[in-house]
C-alpha cells in the first residue's frame, strides 16, 4: 500500500491540500476582481473559491497516475483504492473546513469536491485533459454567475456554503467516482 500511495502521489496531494488550507486561512477572503457583463462594477471572487482548483488538479493527477497496464490487470481492488483516495481527500477537506472555521472554508471545501467531481467525469472522456473541465467551468461561472441569486449552477463563485449549493458538486463527485465502476455492473455493450 505504501508503494501504491507513492505511485499515486499521496504526499503531493497532502502538501497541495495543506497549502490550499493555508491559503484559504491566510488570504481566502481577499477578493480578486472579475469582469462581469451583467454587473456595473467589477465584481470580486474570493481567493478561497478559486484556490481549490489547483489542489483538486493535484488530487486528480495523483488518482490517475500509476502504471496504467499494471493496474489494469491488478488482482487488488485498485479502483476502490483510487476512489478511496479521492473520497478520503474530499472528506478530509470537509473536516478541515469544519475544524478550521475561517471565512469561506466550507465553500472552499465544496469547490474542491465539485472541481474533483467534474474532473472525474471529464476523465471518462479524456484523462489527460480532465482538469480542463473544472477550470473552464470556473471561468464560465465567474463570468456569468450571480452569487447570491440562488441559481444551482454557479456554485464555484457562491461564497455561501448553503446546502443547495452542494447538490451539483456532490452529484458530480458521486457520479464521477461511480462511473468507472459501472461497466462491471452493467450488461455488456456492442452485443451482436
Amino acid at each position: 500500500m505504501r508503494t501504491w500511495l507513492r505511485v499515486h502521489r499521496a504526499a503531493q496531494v497532502c502538501v497541495a491540500l495543506a497549502l490550499t488550507a493555508g491559503l484559504v486561512a491566510a488570504a481566502g477572503d481577499v477578493l480578486v476582481p472579475v469582469p462581469r457583463p451583467t454587473l456595473d462594477d467589477l465584481a470580486g471572487v474570493p481567493v478561497a473559491l478559486v484556490a481549490p482548483l489547483v489542489a483538486s488538479s493535484v488530487l486528480v493527477r495523483g488518482a490517475l497516475a500509476g502504471g496504467g497496464s499494471l493496474e489494469a490487470v491488478a488482482v487488488r481492488p485498485v479502483l476502490a483504492y483510487r476512489t478511496g483516495l479521492v473520497a478520503l481527500t474530499c472528506a478530509l477537506s470537509l473536516v478541515m473546513a469544519v475544524v478550521e472555521t475561517v471565512p469561506y472554508g466550507a465553500a472552499a471545501a465544496r469547490n474542491l469536491v465539485g472541481f474533483t467531481g467534474l474532473a472525474a467525469l471529464a476523465a471518462l472522456w479524456r484523462r489527460d485533459a480532465a482538469t480542463a473541465a473544472p477550470a473552464a467551468y470556473l471561468v464560465a461561472a465567474m463570468l456569468l454567475g450571480r452569487p447570491g441569486a440562488g441559481s444551482w449552477w454557479d456554485w464555484p463563485v457562491e461564497p455561501s456554503p448553503h446546502p443547495a449549493t452542494w447538490v451539483v458538486p456532490a452529484a458530480c463527485l458521486g457520479l464521477g467516482l461511480a462511473a468507472p465502476a459501472l461497466p462491471r455492473l452493467m450488461p455488456r455493450r456492442h452485443r451482436r
Binding site: 480578486v32 482548483l53 489547483v54 488538479s57 493527477r61
Partner: peptide, 15 residues
Amino acid sequence: HPLVGVPLLLVGTWL
C-alpha cells in the same frame, strides 16, 4: 503533467 499544468497556468496567470 497537463492535469496540473493547464489549470495552474489558467488560474495562476489570471490571479
